[in-house]
Design a protein around this nucleic acid. Structure first.
Lengths: 168, 168
DNA sequence: CTAATTTGCTGTCCAAGACAGGTAAGCGAC
DNA sequence: GTCGCTTACCTGTCTTGGACAGCAAATTAG
């Protein structure tokens, strides 16, 4: 073994978690590189994708779906709005809320972005057979469900306090 | 289905990639929360772990293993050094290079960190049977190999130019 | 010896997470 | 109606981290 950074060994403390970390890192690196082609950052792209998929929505709902807090959502939407890909419109039903929807320019991006996702998916699955892909996907979903069950999202908006190692 | 953000549907463009993204996000969220207990951020902790696992190493090698560039590696090492968890020492074999090694304080952290990893792993695998865990891990490793084969790491240090959607 | 390369460091710009406020709108109790 | 609480969004600040440019010292090639 010792093929690059695969399964370093100290991963003994948590092989699956560790592998998730490594996979996520390089996968996101690869995705970020592909996404650059359209000038979007991963989070921005995920938000757009959520919009294409679910239609106009309030920022709060978008944030909850993406796992970002309201401040982060605001900024992501702002950048997309400045770029002309989304539009904000007051919610007629609740004047506190803002509906976010894609503009034609945003919609025009969709095809391109989906082509990139398809490409990313091809690179990711490589030469796996459909059966292997299905089993891998099932494993991922299962892990996702487990982690979700521990409720990190439920607590997402909560104040937790205590920072990590800071500059100090 | 439709349990929270699981399999939103537009993920049709790349179900596995999309799931990796979502899983990575909440998993890292959960890990970050657990890691806070020792005052470390995920990247810092991964670097420490790599050190425990592979012994003293040069910064370049550490960076390559973690997928960060030299600037990022410098900063992470600096913070760990300021916190007293690692030490830097000139490489006797190449006086340009710096060897990074853990201090006793860093080593003392190991047990605690590994306990956290074990806890994280338990939460992540949930009630999966050992067989299911093995199959999930195999899937993850397979995906990792595929993505690595596309070489994002090989190009890691390269200049790629072109930024994403920026402020204006 | 000189010239090119490698290694690490610094600084800048940027995205994004976490948190602490602040404002405006809605809603319930009285 | 008014008072008070909650919700939805925004802003500012701090921090981590990615990407990049430039620099100094050491190494290596010629």
């Amino acid at each position: 073994m010792d093929e690059g950074s695969i399964a370093p060994g100290a991963a003994a403390g948590g092989p699956i978690s560790h592998t998730i970390f490594r996979l996520a890192r390089i996968h996101s690196l690869l995705a970020g590189r592909l996404l650059r082609e359209v000038g979007l950052h991963p989070s921005q792209e995920l938000l757009l994708m959520a919009l294409w998929d679910g239609g106009p929505r309030r920022q709060t709902d978008l944030g909850a779906e993406l796992g970002t807090d309201s401040a982060g959502t605001t900024r992501i939407v702002q950048r997309l709005e400045e770029a002309g890909y989304v539009r904000r419109r007051p919610d007629p039903a609740d004047r506190r809320a803002t509906l976010v929807e894609t503009t034609p320019a945003g919609a025009a991006l969709r095809e391109h972005v989906e082509r990139i996702w398809t490409h990313l998916e091809e690179l990711t699955v490589g030469d796996m057979t459909p059966a292997e892909q299905g089993s891998a996907l099932a494993g991922l979903l299962r892990l996702e469900r487990n982690v979700l069950a521990t409720d990190p999202c439920q607590e997402l908006g909560r104040r937790v306090g205590k920072r990590g190692l800071t500059r100090e």
